[in-house]
Nucleic acid binder design. Structure first.
Lengths: 222, 222
DNA sequence: GTCGACAAGATTGTTGACAATCGTTGCCGG
DNA sequence: CCGGCAACGATTGTCAACAATCTTGTCGAC
């Protein structure tokens, strides 16, 4: 029951249903989620520790708003961690793994040609997730999952930068090539280069504080 | 009060007073820490989310035991994150910062010559902490703090490897030199080299599952 | 002697009510 | 008209009791 409240709240925050800085009143959540107040409380504690909500004593919890500067920080951290994951993935990749990656790339290429940017973004997230899974590195997995959750507000921004999609595809191809070759150093370097460009694209992105009206369930930009 | 229980418990785990796999019975903690049960409960939830305790439903919480493999994973993650921090520190270092680092190094050299390995380990932790502070990177700071907490059981092991202290000092000197020169790439590389050697030393360390009888309040090995 | 069922104890999960605190509103004096 | 102030409503923090569940020890059957 407590885990339920946690999952529900987390999903609502990640999907954008709960806007940043929105107050999370325990009584409201209790009624809306149909769970007891204690469950809501522990869920909020967990989300706070996870960095998704902030909590002031006697003032309640609110959805945490990450600003541009912190977003850049988070992306930097993700960069080095996913670089590490790419290194491990390259060292452990089986032929089947590589085939899977190439299939995702081909799929991404199709969407790209069709102009389906949202589809590209989804394949993007899938590719990164697959690499993380291949790395078999539980700690990095956990850390990246936590960091990714805090970037929901920026997930669709970089894809929209003109010309970004093509460069992104080339970068992904380089990563997959390095992993396929079993070259750990090259894989890590390619991942760092890729996410470095994402950071740069995010910085140059003109619209700040986009209202983030709605969002798909699970994806992650890069 | 809740924060108190959290701090107290965290300190007891980090100091080694609470052994790994030891059961954390809510009633006992309530009596021993002098706080109410609700406070103990939220403290346990936070510690669980932080990865210091594990919790099974209806079976209670126990201090989490991290094995050799996971310790290596954590060190790898710390390695790339502290490398990032070293990069930032090199870019932002003021002359006062550099002087502070050199002072710590000199202090460490003295202890080393005096054979005070525990003192060396402390200065070690101080040096890493100072670098993290200089980086001004809140996200990396938070992540590293979380990771460091899970490695308490291994904190004094690497220092004891014969000849490790001297090499460690040389590595630290290289890091400080790079930071002093403002060379971000070199600083990151030096930090990666240093923590890579720590990982290696940990792997080669003969005694596994050392009982960890007691420990100083706060230090961290490297 | 060993296995399984069963009951007792211990421990956690949940609920509801009460106390403490914060923000706001309306009032009063200047 | 404006600033301070007191009371109120709303919300969170805390506590104690109860229910649910797991573990342990015991007994009986095979």
């Amino acid at each position: 029951m407590a885990a339920d409240a946690y999952s529900l709240l987390r999903a609502e925050i990640l999907s954008g249903e709960l806007q940043p800085s929105e107050r999370l009143v325990e009584a409201d959540l209790t009624a809306r989620l149909g769970v007891s107040r204690g469950a809501v409380r522990t869920a909020l504690v967990r989300l706070q520790q996870e960095g998704l909500v902030e909590h002031e004593r006697h003032r309640g919890a609110r959805v945490r708003l990450v600003g541009e500067r912190e977003a850049a920080e988070i992306l930097e951290a993700r960069m080095v961690l996913e670089g590490l994951a790419a290194r491990h993935a390259a060292a452990r990749a089986t032929p089947e793994d590589v085939a899977g990656l190439r299939a995702i790339l081909a799929d991404m290429r199709e969407r790209l040609d069709a102009g389906d940017l949202l589809g590209v973004s989804d394949r993007n997230a899938i590719l990164h997730a697959r690499l993380l899974a291949m790395a078999g590195h539980a700690t990095v997995d956990r850390l990246v999952a936590g960091l990714r959750g805090q970037l929901v507000r920026f997930q669709y921004r970089t894809i929209l930068v003109p010309g970004r999609s093509d460069r992104s595809f080339a970068e992904h191809t380089a990563i997959v090539d390095a992993v396929a070759a079993g070259d750990a150093d090259a894989a890590e370097a390619a991942m760092l280069r890729h996410l470095g460009h994402v950071t740069q694209a995010l910085r140059e992105s003109p619209q700040r504080n986009s209202a983030s009206t709605a969002a798909a369930p699970n994806p992650t930009a890069s």
